[in-house]
Deep mutational scan, measured.
Amino acid sequence: KRPMNAFMVWAKDERRKILQAFPDMHNSNISKILGSRWKSMSNQEKQPYYEEQARLSKIHLEKYPNYK
């Protein structure tokens, strides 16, 4: 399994927050909201998630050096 990208790292927690506020919301609607919110974020706001992506990718590479 591939490591999560920056959007997926961010969306994991955000999806949970949306589901708590709107438990009956369909997954497709949540995904649209998440995509819209991510697009509206500045690069500075996204930076911690890109850093986490890099950390996860490094761990993945160490654990699975032959993964293609």
Rank of each mutant, 00 (worst) to 15 (best):
K58M: 10
I59E: 15
K1R: 09
L56F: 05
A11H: 00
M8L: 08
Y67N: 15
N5Q: 06
L56R: 07
S40L: 08
V9Q: 04
I33N: 05
L19H: 10
Q44L: 11
P65T: 09
S28C: 08
I59S: 13
Q47W: 05
E45S: 03
V9R: 04
H26V: 09
K63S: 12
K17F: 01
Q44M: 13
I30F: 03
I33K: 07
P23R: 06
S28F: 10
L56P: 10
Q53N: 08
H26F: 07
P48I: 09
V9S: 07
N29P: 01
N43D: 14
K12Y: 05
L56H: 09
L34Y: 00
S40N: 12
K17P: 00
Y64A: 14
K58L: 09
Y64K: 15
P3D: 15
P3L: 07
S42I: 07
M41R: 03
E14A: 11
L19G: 03
A54N: 08
R55D: 08
N66S: 10
V9A: 07
M4Q: 06
L61F: 09
Q53H: 10
P23K: 04
H26E: 13
E45H: 03
L34Q: 00
S31H: 08
D24K: 10
D24S: 02
I33C: 02
P65C: 10
N27D: 15
P23A: 04
L19D: 04
Y67R: 12
E45D: 11
K1A: 12
I30D: 02
K39R: 13
H60M: 05
A21R: 12
K58N: 10
F22V: 07
S57D: 14
Q20G: 07
I33W: 09
A54I: 08
L34F: 03
W10M: 00
E51R: 05
V9G: 03
K46E: 01
K68Y: 08
P65K: 12
D13M: 00
R16Q: 12
I18E: 00
K32A: 10
K58I: 07
M4C: 07
A21S: 09
E51F: 02
N27Y: 11
Q44V: 11
R16A: 13
S42D: 08
S28M: 05
N27Q: 13
K68G: 11
H60A: 12
Q44S: 10
R2K: 15
Y49A: 02
W10L: 00
L34W: 00
V9C: 10
H26D: 15
D24T: 04
K17C: 02
A54T: 09
A6K: 03
D24V: 01
R2S: 13
A54W: 06
E52I: 05
V9E: 05
W38M: 00
A54D: 14
E45M: 07
K58C: 07
P65E: 12
A11F: 05
L19A: 12
K32S: 08
D13Y: 01
K12I: 08
A6Q: 03
Y64Q: 13
N43W: 13
Y49V: 01
R16H: 12
K68D: 09
S31K: 15
I33Y: 07
P65F: 07
R15P: 01
R16M: 15
M25Y: 01
E51V: 09
S57F: 08
P48R: 04
K32L: 06
L56W: 06
K1Y: 12
E14V: 14
S42F: 04
K12C: 05
P23G: 02
E62N: 10
K1V: 08
E62M: 06
Y49P: 08
S42P: 03
A6F: 00
S57R: 11
L56V: 08
K17Q: 03
A11Y: 02
P48F: 08
P23H: 04
F7G: 01
P3G: 07
W38S: 01
Q47V: 08
Y67P: 14
Y64S: 15
Y64M: 14
Y49S: 03
S57Q: 08
N27C: 12
Q44A: 14
R2Q: 07
A11L: 03
R2D: 15
P3K: 15
K17V: 04
K63C: 09
Y50F: 11
S40H: 15
I30N: 01
E52Y: 01
L56I: 10
R55Q: 03
L61A: 14
M4A: 10
Y49R: 04
L56Y: 04
K58A: 12
Q20Y: 03
K63Q: 14
M4L: 06
M25A: 08
R15Y: 10
K68L: 06
A6C: 00
K58W: 03
R15L: 14
L56N: 07
F7A: 02
E62A: 09
A11N: 00
K63F: 05
Y50C: 04
Y50E: 07
P3Y: 11
